[in-house]
Write a protein that binds this DNA or RNA. Structure first.
Lengths: 234, 234
DNA sequence: CGTGGTTCAGTGGACTAGCCAATAGGACAC
DNA sequence: GTGTCCTATTGGCTAGTCCACTGAACCACG
């Protein structure tokens, strides 16, 4: 769910072929255990493997080059210059205790995001945040866990921060965050508590108080952390 | 390093055609007074105007699309979705290198890293931090900018945090951080100030005081930020 | 012995020509 | 008016071809 950027709805996004190809390349590279510095197969060969023309593959490589994932060297080959998203997840999964790390990282990123959001939020941002809150509330009232609304809320806050770099890092760890979210919201009483936490965060953002927003987000993640550690720990 | 005597080799930067084309498009769009929402000429026509093939033009458009400058709509046309600030071509080469964003992100990640380091640092970690400080000090005393030592220091703090995920994210933004580091340390008096900031951070980590370490790191990055913004402002 | 040039295989860079697919807008039937 | 269909225009993608660059092996010369 590459989403933190747009609270906007489904919007039939026509996926261009090169996007899919770029995605396939990164996942394939991750699964193949390719690391920084390794070479991708030659374009002609790779194009055949992926079942696309060389021109399309070239577009995909341009996209990956612009994003800084690969470096295409004329006459030499194409090399990975940055670990791909999937490889990050893979690397982390190799570690036994990943949940605490995920929460630490969320704490680092999201407190900053909340503070920035309090400073920069537009009316549209606030509307998206409110909508996410409403969605979560409705779900929780109906006995649900509010997973969707929770996710949307954090995505809306990310969007409201208007920081492309931080947003990208959130996308990077998104799959890991999903895990922790599910674990947390699956506990009795947690959805309501989480909703309350969100309300405090939203209030601080609406009020334009960066410090309060950061503190509220920190508390919120700390709450998730506590319970998760209890479950996991002893 | 083939020739220590010469300061700078010719540096033949091989520019791909699509990069030049992308640049031409943005500058042309700016000069033509095109604003957000306006349509670019059809690909076939534009390709002729620019004197390149449609395939190459397509690559350029992919690059601009990835960066978020244009939106290519099948069957309709290509529209501008973000004002082109002339320097956008540069932005493509440097990925998403917006200095303020980089510093925001560093602030988010590194304050947390410093706090964790204060809690978890081992003797080896402290030794590495001290070594980096010593290296930077020696370089600065000798009139250098201490770039190497600066980098090592932050790497040592990152290692001392013992958080693989945060470390990975630091790796992600490493190339961007390098830019900001160079810009900052190139200013008169900055290396010394930076060294002092490092000392405060190190002291807090040695003392095992997470809050103080985070605060010191925050101040340190804030200092870099101030100067950088001054530079940018003019 | 080594320095420097040459060759060659492999690789990406770019172009041309062509067909497919989506869109918008007008023509038409109702 | 209203809805449907048609069509010109536009981008999407492919195939085939040639060119330029890289690196390594090779060889000739000093």
């Amino acid at each position: 769910m590459p989403d933190p950027g747009r609270p906007l709805p489904p919007k039939v996004t026509r996926t261009r072929l090169y996007e899919q190809v770029a995605e396939q390349i990164t996942t394939w590279a991750a699964q193949s255990g390719l690391t920084v510095g390794d070479r991708l197969p030659p374009e002609r060969e790779l194009a055949v493997q992926l079942g696309v023309s060389r021109a399309t593959l070239s577009q995909a490589l341009v996209a990956l080059e612009v994003v800084g994932v690969v470096a295409v060297r004329h006459g030499d080959g194409t090399v990975l210059v940055r670990p791909t998203t999937a490889s990050i997840g893979q690397a982390i999964r190799a570690h036994a205790s990943r949940l605490p790390e995920i929460l630490e990282t969320r704490d680092a990123l999201e407190t900053k995001l909340a503070a920035l959001a309090a400073e920069r939020r537009t009316d549209d941002d606030l509307a998206a945040i409110e909508a996410a809150l409403a969605e979560m509330e409705a779900d929780v009232e109906a006995g649900g866990r509010g997973v969707e609304g929770d996710q949307r809320f954090h995505a809306a806050v990310t969007a409201a921060s208007h920081s492309a770099l931080l947003a990208r890092l959130m996308v990077e760890i998104a799959p890991l965050v999903t895990e922790s979210r599910l674990e947390s919201l699956s506990q009795p009483g947690r959805p309501r508590a989480s909703l309350a936490g969100h309300r405090r965060i939203a209030a601080a953002i609406v009020a334009g108080d960066p410090a309060a927003a950061a503190a509220a987000m920190h508390d919120h993640i700390g709450m998730v952390s506590d319970v998760a550690l209890l479950r996991e720990g002893q």
